[in-house]
């Protein structure tokens, strides 16, 4: 168990290193690292100055060592747009995302697991069909568009809910729906198919033979087994969530790290983008590690091997 987690931890470090090297290399391979790191209106002298200051005239491996050393000490360069250390900008925005993403994730779980379970248990009935239709539509709807449509209906036409920026609880409703929608679609389908599989298993048959009620059979014997694939794929879902947060925060002008990513792209603020990516990578890898531990708790086959 401990070895399992330790191994995962080192794997995460390797992934992080690879991402760092990719980000580093992309800025240099194209041969215009200085341009990427400079504001568009920078003059020739600024450029020379920067080349020296960043050591871009040095050999590649030396630059990489310097970059990694900087990254380790929390220095990922200055944001061009904000004229502040990029890491600082990131952490200013992070709390805003941390209020939105967990709410969306929780809503998605609370909706999709019971719905997927019911769809499987009542296969072929109206519940199954409706949830199936929701899933198919949810997967086909681009979340940026869903957000805009929601704003049009609930903010502009009906005037019920605010359309942008942070604020009271009402401000959370539309972004949460937008962010949770495609997660719900994916999770629901997964829960449904894994519950169907478990329902056909021999141990469920044995549980019925024991004389257990339908409720116990489903909520005790099926649910926990059916959740294993959901937890296994949680990493994938979380990756989708991070992606979704970029789009959702952009649509709703939500001042979080997702919107920050968008700004970095739009303003071609490469130092900011590289900082955002490395820090997000760290968070994602940390979450995945936590999920591995949860997984071991759910499935004794992993816990004891």
């Amino acid at each position: 168990m401990q070895r399992f987690i330790l191994r995962r931890f080192f794997q995460s470090l390797v992934v992080l290193l690879v991402v760092a090297v990719v980000v580093f290399a992309l800025a240099r391979v194209t041969g215009n690292a200085a341009d990427l790191l400079l504001p568009e209106d920078a003059g020739r002298e600024d450029r020379e100055h920067l080349l020296k200051a960043l050591g871009l005239d040095r050999p590649m491996h030396e630059q990489l060592a310097r970059f990694l050393k900087g990254a380790l000490s929390g220095d990922l360069g200055m944001s061009i747009r904000y004229r502040k250390p990029a890491v600082e900008v990131f952490f200013e925005r992070l709390p805003n995302t941390l209020t939105l993403v967990p709410i969306a994730l929780l809503s998605a779980i609370v909706i999709s697991i019971p719905l997927g379970l019911l769809a499987a248990v009542y296969r072929g009935t109206i519940i199954d069909r409706v949830s199936g239709a929701i899933a198919v539509l949810g997967i086909a709807t681009p979340s940026f568009w869903l957000g805009i449509v929601l704003i049009y209906i609930f903010s502009i036409q009906l005037g019920w809910l605010p359309s942008a920026r942070m604020g009271g609880p009402a401000h959370y409703i539309l972004p949460t729906i937008t962010l949770a929608a495609f997660l719900v679609a994916g999770m629901m389908r997964l829960v449904r198919s894994s519950v169907l599989e478990v329902l056909n298993s021999e141990f469920v048959k044995l549980a019925r033979i024991k004389g257990l009620s339908q409720t116990v059979v489903i909520w005790k014997h099926c649910l926990r087994n059916a959740l294993i694939p959901v937890v296994t794929l949680f990493g994938v879902f979380f990756a989708l969530l991070v992606t979704g947060a970029i789009v959702t925060e952009t649509v709703f002008a939500w001042p979080g790290v997702g919107r920050l990513t968008y700004e970095a792209v739009i303003f071609r603020d490469y130092p900011l983008l590289q900082a955002v990516i490395l820090l997000k990578a760290m968070i994602v890898l940390g979450v995945n590690l936590a999920v591995d531990i949860l997984y071991a708790y759910l499935d004794p086959r992993v816990r004891y091997s």
Binding site: S201, E202, F203, I209, G211, N225, I228
Partner: peptide, 25 residues
């Protein structure tokens, strides 16, 4: 029927590998 299953009629299934729920002791 639930009061009869297990208490008055019981059954042993074919494959022990899948007859027990893997997540409970």
């Amino acid at each position: 029927m639930r009061r009869i299953r297990g208490r008055r009629i019981s059954m042993i299934l074919q494959d022990p590998q899948t007859s027990l729920n893997p997540v409970f002791n």
